[in-house]
């Protein structure tokens, strides 16, 4: 999974394997800092379905957001 963010002159590119274990790990850590972060139990079934979808249908851009006001650009490619 590729997460691309252009904001305030920074260009961030994250290339993450779409891995249930990794997502669960990341969310557990993030939840220590904010209770807004969803429970891994909710997200993991979605990751499994997204992996299945990608295997069957190929790459897809899940989300693309261009904010004209502050020039922020966010893209998530599966």
């Amino acid at each position: 999974m590729k997460i691309a963010v252009n904001a305030e002159g920074h260009k961030i590119r994250l290339y993450l394997p779409l891995s249930v274990g990794l997502v669960r790990f990341g969310l557990r850590i993030a939840r220590r800092y904010s209770d807004q972060v969803p429970d891994p139990k909710l997200i993991v079934p979605l990751i499994k379905e997204l992996k299945r979808w990608k295997r069957k249908n190929g790459k897809i851009t899940l989300v693309e957001v261009e904010d004209q006001k502050d020039g922020t650009f966010v893209q998530i490619v599966l």
Partner: peptide
């Protein structure tokens, strides 16, 4: 109107899972 653009492509199968989970859907 302000020029912002949002594009979402969501697999229907994932959407079906979402609609079965109120908490996640609200998020």
């Amino acid at each position: 109107k302000g020029g912002d653009k949002v594009r979402v492509n969501f697999p229907v199968s994932v959407l079906m899972m979402l609609t079965e989970n109120e908490e996640l859907m609200n998020m």
